[in-house]
């Protein structure tokens, strides 16, 4: 079983841009900037602690949203393994 650690945080704010793409059903997926307050690694690596310098740090990541429930704030979000790697290397703005 692949075990790649993933950082999680809580979505603080979602900024919707005008950029969008359409899927095969004609749904529009808008490019959004998620501002996420980091708090832990996911349960996949239960014994791993988030470095203190990153705790409560805010990162900006891109997600493409379509349905009403995608725009909820205050919920947990999981960074991808690549996003996790970038954050651990000190990058906090992953929108560029």
């Amino acid at each position: 079983m692949v075990c790649v650690r993933r950082i999680q945080g809580i979505v603080q704010e979602i900024i919707r841009t005008d950029e969008f793409k359409e899927d095969e059903d004609g749904n529009k997926w808008y490019k959004c900037i998620f501002i996420v307050k980091l708090d832990r690694f996911s349960k996949r690596t239960p014994n791993e602690e988030l470095p203190a310098r990153l705790k409560n740090e805010k990162v900006r990541i891109v997600r493409w949203c379509c349905f009403d429930w995608h725009y909820k704030t205050g919920i947990r979000i999981t960074l991808t393994p690549n996003e996790t790697k970038a954050v651990l290397e000190g990058r906090l703005d992953l929108t560029r």
Binding site: D25, W29, C32, V62, R63, W64, C65, C66, F67, H70, T80
Partner: peptide
Amino acid sequence: KKYGRYPLR
């Protein structure tokens, strides 16, 4: 399958 799709990364 449709409405349960997550935000794209």
